[in-house]
């Protein structure tokens, strides 16, 4: 790694969407570094570009400008354009996602959902999946299906699933938006603990109160990170 040990290193990252002849500059040159174990909060109102930033960093979308290195992999910069296979591998090996919607597979039990990302790694470690569910406080719901779980419980399953392939970076896009404040705090605490154990986290939210509890807070508005 030539990134000084950083999990994420982004310089002047930009993303412009062009749809129907109109151009939307969702990111206008943001700089971003995240170290292992660092809990970074991306705070901004709706439409600020938070989701775009997470998608670009997570290799779901390609930046239109700037440089980006994630987990030692050069994703963009110096005219390099990552191939789809490289982005798939990046997400598979190094990144976990959690979203406001939990996106669990409805036909599978909690344990099976956690095991899904291991399929394409040709591994299936049920013990590890159960251990992770225990870690997120769901040892009594192992064989429940999503429709038998509460919102908070579903998000815990999604979190365990995001961690199953031992990612270096967790991208959390408003993961507490659909939860009540009590559950929200529980999930946040869980993330806090994970970051204390060395996981780098990029947490997008419009919730000021939550933002105060991160290690680093980046205020994003109109695709630009404001100086503190």
């Amino acid at each position: 790694m030539n990134t000084n040990g950083h999990v994420v290193q982004a310089t002047n990252l930009s993303k412009t969407y062009s749809t129907g002849g109109r151009e939307v500059e969702a990111l206008r040159g943001i700089d971003l570094t995240i170290a292992p174990g660092e809990f970074t909060v991306l705070l901004g109102p709706s439409g600020a570009g938070k989701t775009t930033a997470l998608n670009v960093v997570g290799g779901l979308d390609r930046p239109t400008g700037g440089e980006l290195t994630v987990a030692g992999e050069v994703i963009a910069g110096n005219g390099h354009r990552a191939r789809e296979g490289q982005l798939d591998a990046l997400r598979r090996k190094h990144i976990g996602f959690v979203f406001a919607q939990f996106h669990l597979l409805p036909t599978l039990t909690a344990v099976e959902n956690v095991l899904v990302p291991m399929i394409w790694e040709d591994a299936s470690d049920r013990g590890r999946a159960e251990g992770l569910l225990r870690r997120v406080g769901l040892d009594h719901r192992l064989t429940h299906r999503p429709d038998e779980l509460s919102g908070g419980e579903m998000q815990r399953v999604a979190l365990a699933r995001a961690l199953v392939n031992r990612p270096a970076l967790l991208l959390a896009d408003e993961p507490t938006a659909n939860l009540d404040t009590h559950t929200r705090d529980e999930i946040f605490e869980l993330l806090r603990e994970l970051s204390d154990e060395g996981l780098a986290i990029l947490f997008a939210t419009h919730d000021h109160e939550l933002a105060e509890r991160g290690d680093t807070v980046l205020r994003l508005s109109d695709g630009v990170i404001a100086d503190d």
């Binding site: 997570g58 798939d88 990046l90 997400r91 996106h103 597979l105 409805p106 699933r161 995001a162």
Partner: peptide, 16 residues
């Protein structure tokens, strides 16, 4: 569509 999209987000490739 959404489930398949999520599988891809988690790293499943086109071939998978």
């Amino acid at each position: 569509t959404r489930e398949i999209g999520m599988m891809k987000a988690m790293g499943a490739g086109r071939a998978d």
